[in-house]
Design a protein around this nucleic acid. Structure first.
Lengths: 344, 344
DNA sequence: CTGAAAGCGCTAACAA
DNA sequence: TTGTTAGCGCTTTCAG
């Protein structure tokens, strides 16, 4: 607490014990007489004593805090993942504090280092799309800070990772569009620097290949800001619809991108003509016009799994050296936006 | 940092100074020779020294951290408000850490006290709908912790408050429905314990009164969980449509409630018949079927304003005793969902 | 079973 | 200008 809070010292003084005795009584140390323990506990209760976690962190280098860094909480995937994180963490006695990078590499670094310097016990991170230099994370990792990557992961650091099966999610979504008869499927995706981008691109490409549809580079558009900036999407879409091979369907690779693309199509009155599906965890896909076909990620479970792995690392007696990468399956929810020739 | 980090002591040892000299040099104290300062600064840079904020907090009782407590980040209003908060805070050199109460009074208390005990410099809070006992906040406030309430505020604590003009927002929305010819306007709202609930209810009631429409209690439904639980909404809606006075329009008072009500109407195939408007900051209202009429709150600005006031309190030399309550105007965005007799 | 004392990293009052 | 010392709240050897 910040202001004139009761400390262990106050208890000691009032009860005429030493601070160490009080400390021991409070932590339920066995080497203390039942009577003293009772006395201390009761008095502490009475004056509403609360241990100071800052002092504890300084001493113990433990905080019972898990730091989370995501690009943006105003994103259905991440807010759901965070709920998964909290659901596990709180049950295991950890606090969760959340920070946003806003897709800025610099902000991400600042957040991570701030977490570390405030002694979080572990870090859960999904990388920003601007991030290229991972040394700040490597350093922390080498110093022994438990880190689990989720969603946007990296090969450069050897630790636990949890992500959706982006490859298969993308493959199925693309194949679904192909089954519907679409032939010129554009893929609007996130920054090429991200793991998810490549996984999804590969799924898309493999689905095309399987069905002998030529892979047309001009139908692939990267958003370097992953949908943070509307103008970027508008420009990409403009290009897309101005070039000679115009798409007959769009497959968007992210929550924000999906919404922005839809907005664009709506404004251009193309919503009904162009087949559409996207990676998004929105809960209101069925309320859209037309109802939205989506690739839904198990966001909550991803958050949970990442947190379980992290806590496992944190609480492990000896350094963990065996790491897993968990891949959770996505779900393709088919609604009208991807059905060919259906008028609502 | 957590593990074998360089401390001021290391620098002192290496350079053969005392720790205090190093400390002073680092903080740019004037009472230090230019040469020493240069030496220290350079060495610190070289070995990548980072001050330990935990130690600082313990000592200084300052942390350059602002704690935020909201019920839920998976809510357009709150995620936008948080972006407003961060936009100001980071420019002023504060870190922002976010926690969620999930509308649980207990969790809220835990989060608040955790923030306080980790020495946040100030607190930004929007109350959970379950909260009735505010003593934990009063205590902290009396001890001098700067607190600013936003959105869901309270009369019980005298401090700065920032909220939308819920009364007028609600009044205009209701009047708009009346202008459209709706006569049996149901109001689905949040928990009666919340400030916003009453403000919105009053706006609704006054709009009815102004147009001589009887206020019918059976058309008012409270969600005690503010839309966290779908079943609650479904039951309310069932009741609403089973009673003798069935609503011809619905006015929903929150982001989650809005979506859940819409989902219900959709499933009941009532979407086109029943007029609809709701408080929500969704960015995709126009993509809905039908496009959604909304009361939009200046969430970003609310976050910004609250943060400015908070930092002002934090940095004020003497205790602030004059408090303001800022009320920011909402915006009614009219789309088809509230237009009578329009078929899309 | 309990107390004294040191120390986590840092700052600041006091001395020199 | 610099060093010494105490102390923020707590835990933990080491003695008793």
């Amino acid at each position: 607490m910040k202001f004139d809070t009761v400390t262990i010292k106050d208890i000691a003084k009032a009860l005429n014990f030493s601070t160490s005795t009080v400390s021991r009584a409070l932590r339920g140390s066995y080497e203390i007489s039942a009577e003293t323990k009772k006395l201390v506990l009761e008095y502490a209760e009475k004056i509403n004593y609360r241990p100071n976690p800052i002092a504890l962190s300084l001493k113990e280098r433990r905080s019972q805090v898990i730091g989370v860094v995501v690009c943006e909480i105003a994103n259905n995937f991440f807010s759901q993942a965070i709920n998964g994180i909290e659901s596990i963490a709180y049950n295991r006695g950890y606090h969760v504090i959340i920070t946003q990078s806003h897709e800025s590499a610099e902000r991400e670094k600042v957040n991570v280092e701030h977490h570390a310097s405030r002694s979080v016990d572990g870090l859960l991170i999904s990388l920003s799309c601007e991030t290229t230099d991972l040394t700040f994370l490597k350093d922390l990792h080498e110093k022994g800070l438990p880190i689990v990557f989720f969603d946007r992961i990296t090969d450069e650091i050897d630790t636990h990772k949890v992500t959706a099966n982006n490859y298969m999610g993308s493959f199925h979504a693309t194949e679904h569009l192909i089954f519907q008869g679409f032939k010129k499927i554009a893929h609007i995706t996130t920054s090429p620097s991200l793991s998810i981008t490549n996984e999804r691109l590969k799924g898309y490409a493999d689905a095309l290949a399987k069905h002998d549809i030529p892979y047309n580079k001009s139908l692939i558009k990267y958003c370097n800001h992953s949908g943070m900036i509307r103008q970027e999407i508008d420009e990409l879409m403009d290009e897309l619809f101005k070039q000679k091979t115009k798409p007959d369907a769009i497959f968007a690779a992210g929550d924000r991108i999906t919404t922005l693309c839809l907005g664009y199509l709506k404004r251009m009155k193309q919503k009904k003509e162009v087949g559409f599906t996207g990676f998004t965890n929105t809960k209101v896909g069925e309320l859209f016009d037309p109802p939205l076909t989506v690739v839904k990620q198990p966001a909550f479970e991803i958050g949970q799994t990442a947190t379980e792995l992290l806590i496992q690392m944190i609480e492990s007696k000896r350094p963990v050296t065996e790491f897993t990468t968990k891949i959770l399956e996505t779900e393709l929810i088919i609604r009208e936006s991807s059905l060919k020739g259906v008028e609502v």
